[in-house]
């Protein structure tokens, strides 16, 4: 089983919808004009809503980049006011939207030769999202290389807090194994996704990891955001897939 094959535009379109939904739910639900302490703050809030609306309803790259920049400003300006806006997934979403803005999606509705010229290279935006996913995992590993995490204490504390309370069963060895396995998997994902033959296996492992995070830990938004990054790996990376995409384009263009 390999990753589902998508054309570059299908991948960009899917990511765009996914990021728009997260932007509305994660930021839109917390940001309102009552938070504005100056006209500039009010302008920034209005700008975010205009950009996010454009992102949801149109195909222009400007809306994607604009929403990304607005989100980054919101993170810095309103982060102190509302903790939900200063979570690192907001910053991650902002950078993802800026990268996505480097990949055009225009023309997917009217695939003529003029509006949909065949692409030869992998889209720069999708490439940057792949790099971002690797960097994300690398920093995940970096932050876990502490005695507190590697000894299993951190996971044990989360288990106490989220699941067992004071009735924690005697499973310390299991927590140590889980801690090292998490570090190993994240390290493998950071590097191995770039290897063509390892990618199908690791992609499934990554999906399982994030579904596990979403179910077992309170990190749903981050998990969905990381999972969306895997869509960037579904776009063509090989000459054959590119040729298929070009042939499809030519066939549709008549």
């Amino acid at each position: 089983m390999t990753l589902p094959p998508l054309t570059s535009r299908q991948a960009v379109l899917g990511l765009r919808f996914g990021f728009a939904l997260i932007a509305w739910s994660q930021v839109g639900g917390h940001l309102h004009l009552g938070m504005a302490r100056s006209p500039w703050h009010a302008a920034l809030i209005v700008a975010f809503y205009i950009m996010a609306t454009g992102l949801s309803l149109t195909w222009g790259r400007t809306w994607s980049v604009g929403t990304g920049i607005a989100l980054a400003l919101v993170y810095h300006v309103f982060g102190d006011h509302d903790g939900a806006l200063q979570r690192h997934q907001v910053w991650l979403l902002a950078s993802s939207l800026v990268w996505l803005g480097l990949s055009p999606v225009e023309g997917w509705r009217s695939p003529t030769a003029a509006s949909w010229p065949p692409r030869r290279e992998t889209d720069p935006g999708l490439r940057l999202l792949r790099v971002q996913l690797s960097v994300l995992y690398a920093f995940g590993v970096l932050h876990k290389l502490t005695p507190a995490f590697l000894s299993g204490d951190r996971l044990e504390a989360i288990a106490v807090e989220q699941w067992f309370g004071s009735d924690l069963p005697s499973l310390h060895v299991g927590f140590v194994a889980a801690a090292w396995a998490t570090v190993g998997i994240e390290l493998a994902l950071a590097v191995g996704l770039w290897h063509r033959s390892l990618r199908p296996f690791l992609a499934r492992l990554g999906l399982l990891l994030h579904v596990g995070f979403a179910v077992l830990l309170p990190v749903q938004t981050f998990s969905v955001l990381a999972l969306l990054h895997y869509v960037a790996w579904c776009a063509p990376t090989t000459a054959k897939r590119r040729r298929e995409e070009q042939a499809l384009t030519r066939a549709w263009a008549g």
Partner: peptide, 11 residues
């Protein structure tokens, strides 16, 4: 930690 610095250096 030393491990983190080593990982950063390797990366």
């Amino acid at each position: 930690t030393h491990l983190q610095a080593l990982f950063t250096l390797s990366s």
